[in-house]
Design a protein around this nucleic acid. Structure first.
Lengths: 160, 160
DNA sequence: TTCGATGCAAATAGTTTGCATTCTA
DNA sequence: TAGAATGCAAACTATTTGCATCGAA
């Protein structure tokens, strides 16, 4: 899960071009490795390793969970894959597309709001001015309470 | 680790007043439970459960790790304790003082910058205006690159 | 034909839980 | 003395690793 040297993100069009890139880097394209890519291309959202190993619950052949983890790490080093953590729970893996999504996670209802990085640029700028800190919300999200839950909470407080 | 109903934060002056509060809530103050409190009062920073169970490496009697976890959960429900997660790695537990600290975590060097909530109020306001989202950085930190590492990275890029 | 990758199983880290026993209120 | 909390062990989730074998280039 923890990648030593995650390379710069690479957006591949499809499994074949991803496979070609692997070979360019001197890596082999085995059946198990191709399968991880196929699953990631099939579901365009972040998934846990277990779900990949299950072949999306049967839509693809099952594969060994240990190998899935190893391949995800390799793919992340190459830059084809990124992983993120949404609160507690397992890491989630997805194809790296050019500009990574960023996330707002509600702790009350577990809702995840996906936003494009530009929407957080002002927040990022503010943090940079204040602390010289370059914030990223693509690997770990912003955590708190979403609008719905906040409204609900204050309603309950007014009328218990 | 995951607390069902974390009560409102309560700041206790010392172990005895914390113990008194426990009894007020109808909870018992056993030796093991008092020990958790003593360790938390002795070290004023967030610590992992394992470190509590070890009695801060021998300064206090060792206790059972399972019971430590159970007691931390109970203490968190009462509001005396809060836990946080700094990136990967185990959860960290600390006494709840009135206004919880918030955190900036650097992914390159693992440095943790502790800030008082007021320093992030503009960030919070911005997020609330944009998304109606109430962000907290006390349970999960803001993750990114600290000023030092950012400087180092751009220096390396200029002079490789 | 080589050595990178696999599959299986065992190991690890962090945390939770069942249960007979202990001890607080 | 009732039942809350303990201590120990086992279970569990997420992830990593050792190793003999296999297969892609």
């Amino acid at each position: 899960m923890t990648v030593a040297h995650p390379g710069p993100a690479v957006a591949a069009r499809d499994v074949e071009s991803a496979a070609a890139l692997m070979r360019e880097r001197g890596l082999r394209v085995s059946a198990a490795r191709r399968l991880v890519l196929e699953v990631l291309f099939a579901t365009r959202e972040p998934v846990r390793a277990e779900r990949i190993a299950s072949g999306l619950e049967g839509r693809f052949p099952r594969s060994d969970l240990g190998s899935v983890y190893r391949n995800l790490e390799t793919l992340e080093q190459v830059g084809l894959v990124r992983h993120l953590h949404l609160g507690h729970g397992p890491g989630l893996y997805a194809l790296a597309d050019g500009r990574p999504s960023e996330y707002l996670l509600c702790e009350s209802c577990d809702a995840v709001r996906v936003v494009v990085p530009a929407q957080l640029d002002r927040v990022r700028r503010l943090l940079h001015e204040r602390f010289g800190f370059e914030a990223r919300f693509s690997h770990f999200p912003i955590v708190g309470t979403c609008a719905d839950c906040a409204r609900r909470a204050s309603a309950e407080q007014a009328d218990p």
